[in-house]
Computed example of a mutant assay.
Amino acid sequence: MAKTAFTCDQIFDGHAMHGNAAILVEDGVCLGVVKQDAVPAGVSVEAVAAWCLSPGFVDLQVNGGGGAQFNDQVNVDGIATICAGHARYGTTSVMVTLITDTADCSRRAVEAAIAAQAANVPGFLGLHLEGPHLSLAKKGAHSADLVRPMTVADLDFLIEAKSKLNHLMMTLAPESVTEAQVRALSGAGVRISLGHSACDAETAKRYTEAGACMVTHLFNAMSPLDHRTPGLAAAALLDARLMTGIIPDGIHVHPDMMRIALRAMGGPRMFAVTDAMATIGTDMTSFDLNGRKILRENGRLTLADGTLAGADIDMAACVKNLHELVGLPLEDALAMATSIPALALGVDDVGRLTQGSRADIVAIDQQFGVRLLPVA
């Protein structure tokens, strides 16, 4: 198949920004980024009118989108609707997320994920189970009636699920799982993220040694920074073995706290997640979750008592906020939506535009409007 070179004034390859460059693509695979004057002879050149080209965004926590909430549409069609809903905003790799639900719903979620993987649903990367093995003290919008400790049967089910899924991620709290269970899950290839937990920093360290490698939505639904009793948030900032998601909607975390966290963490360990719900890409004003109404107003999603219930933001808007509200250079903001979440999940063919990666390319304008480039 003929090679194509997509040219633009700025191209971010997942690691660095390149000026006056071109992305070489063949058969849906990236061959690398080169200077425009280094495009080989005979290659078809397509100039893209955009502020910047970037790898497609990678989102490890997506509860819904396009009008579908995964808990309520636990099937391949639901997964396809959610992925398509986020593709409109530049996200080409989605970890579809099930919020705490019944054991039967978790089973159906795994079955749907296996079927979606087999069907090569566009944008579907894998399954994220956020609960039900969480802390009641830090349950947030998760239903208290459904939060429960992990059993032997749960562990066996999850290890079997991972044997059939390329990518399975779980948010767990030390209060509801043992170190041995985390060790077994991690050993089976499940990516373990600590979250919805009131654990202290020392406990978080032990569970990291057992195999946890991530922290879910930093600062939210966890033991906070405290000058005498450092909690899970402190562990996330200080432990180089942990990567952490954060919701940069300006509501879940103040921009100053994001700046503090980024400085404390040093290297590329923090990535953006939307924690998005069904509302993305729709004019919905409310929806139901586990029999409770979630209200949408002024960029917030809340239960009737005001508890935040996921986020009403897409990944393009997250990148915009990271750049304009937090003040990150564009390439750093883009990395938090591309290569860093890919690194956290342990995948190397998405979130970057380097040799051998998938040619998922997003064109971004200066208002952070996005469009996916049609790549053969």
Rank of each mutant, 00 (worst) to 15 (best):
A2G: 07
T4A: 04
A5P: 04
Q10T: 13
I11V: 15
A16H: 14
I23W: 00
D37M: 04
S44W: 00
V45P: 03
A47C: 03
A49L: 04
F57E: 03
V58S: 03
V62S: 09
G66Q: 09
Q69E: 14
G78P: 06
A80V: 01
C83P: 11
V94W: 00
T97H: 10
T100S: 15
A103T: 06
A115F: 09
Q117T: 05
Q117Y: 12
N120R: 15
N120Y: 12
F124A: 05
H133R: 05
S135M: 02
A144L: 11
D154W: 12
F157K: 03
A188V: 01
A188K: 08
S193W: 02
H196K: 08
D200F: 02
K205F: 07
K205I: 12
R206P: 06
G211A: 12
N220E: 06
P224W: 10
R228A: 12
G231P: 05
D239Y: 07
D249G: 00
P255Y: 02
R259S: 11
I260H: 06
D275M: 09
A276P: 08
T282H: 08
M284N: 09
N298G: 07
C318R: 00
L322A: 01
L334I: 13
M336P: 04
S339N: 13
I340Y: 03
A342W: 02
R352P: 00
L353S: 07
A363V: 10
A363G: 10
Q367W: 02
F368W: 13
